[in-house]
Amino acid sequence: MNIHKFYLNGLYIILDINSGAVHVVDKMVYDMMDVFDGSNDEAVLSAFSGQYLAEEVAEVLSELHQLIDENKLFSKMVEVPLHFSQKPLVKSVCLHVAHDCNLRCNYCFAGTGDFGHTRGLMSKEVAERAVEFIIENSGPRINSEIDFFGGEPLMNMDTVRHAVSYIRRRETETGKKFKLTLTTNGVLLNDEINQYLNDNNISLVLSLDGRREVHDNMRPFVNGAGSYDMILKNVTKTIDSRNGQNYYLRGTFTAHNLDFAADVLDIADKGFTQLSVEPVVAEDCDYALTEEHLPQLFAQYDALAQAYLERKRKGQGFEFFHFNLDLDNGPCVAKRLSGCGAGHEYFAVTPEGDLYPCHQFVGREEFLLGDVFEGVKNTQLPDQFRQSHVLNKAECRDCWARFYCSGGCHANADLFNKDINIPYKIGCELQKKRLECALMIQALLALESGK
């Protein structure tokens, strides 16, 4: 497949997959692309002679051939770059500083914090070793990332503070630079912690699902009471304390709120501007998403895209993670192949120091890779993850979205298909819908700006 065409929000759009060129066309071109293959002008003229004037068809063919000559249409398949090294460099780790939590979210992939094992906190020694693991295995890379994660990382602030001090010292000694993030449910946020996180330039991912009833239904305290009122108060104060910068409010939607666009807009109505909601990943339960839900979910993304544009035009815009698409630059091919890097560039570290391909794999013992004290001992799995990219996966290689989604989530593929090379179908369908919305939005904004 070399092109993808779709109609959305009044725009006929053609994406040239291998170059990334995005063309907004008229209905005539859109229809002709069902027949035109780059070398069959006579067939196109014959097929459309009764519908359009011959001169018009010839005019369109001339424009199409010009795009082909400019490598913006039917461009050649991108192959694995020769410099896509067989030897990956570690770029980031997810530090599970706490396998414990003060909420009991119904959909938690982490088994409400303990990842199916005993609850526990990461020691300062393990945190230091995790930092050294990156330094030792990142080669000439300068920039690395560490996410403080859980469970709930604020339940182990002693280790977080120690790790941050250690990281800053090692930056000075090694010349490496670490970007730090912390993912929290917001329960323990207070003025003192806000000040600390701001002073240390730690980006935040804050969990909020949307409307009160939606959030409380899925994110109760241990005693079953809803957490919405406390979380909204806390995250509002935290975001205000950092002048509305350097954060993402991240929600999860389920079969219980298939009208999730209303949840995004509810959060936006409260003045928050950096937003994301993700589909729950679950099966065989009342909140799991199924293929039957897809048409309704697609309509919600369409509605969200409309609202996104309307608010942006009024100067009341918000950023939605999945609509942020850089059509002019974007990641390099190597990055598009390696995607999240789970299992070869990115690792999760448990409180005990064990290494897994990512936070979602923690607790799946067959994916244990080693530990921060002795390094990666399973040498086969990282290679399998590195080779599990879009050009090597049968279902991805011919998919129009391959250079935007990077092959989907390995953990979901394993969960649903027991094979990291077979992508999770519902995830694929939702990703493609979000991409069409993002392409439409960026194309429309480019047209409106007269670019």
Binding site: A21, H23, V24, E59, V60, V333
Partner: peptide, 12 residues
Amino acid sequence: KHIITVNKLQEE
């Protein structure tokens, strides 16, 4: 007249 290209893959 019929096609507008709105943006400008081959090109740490």
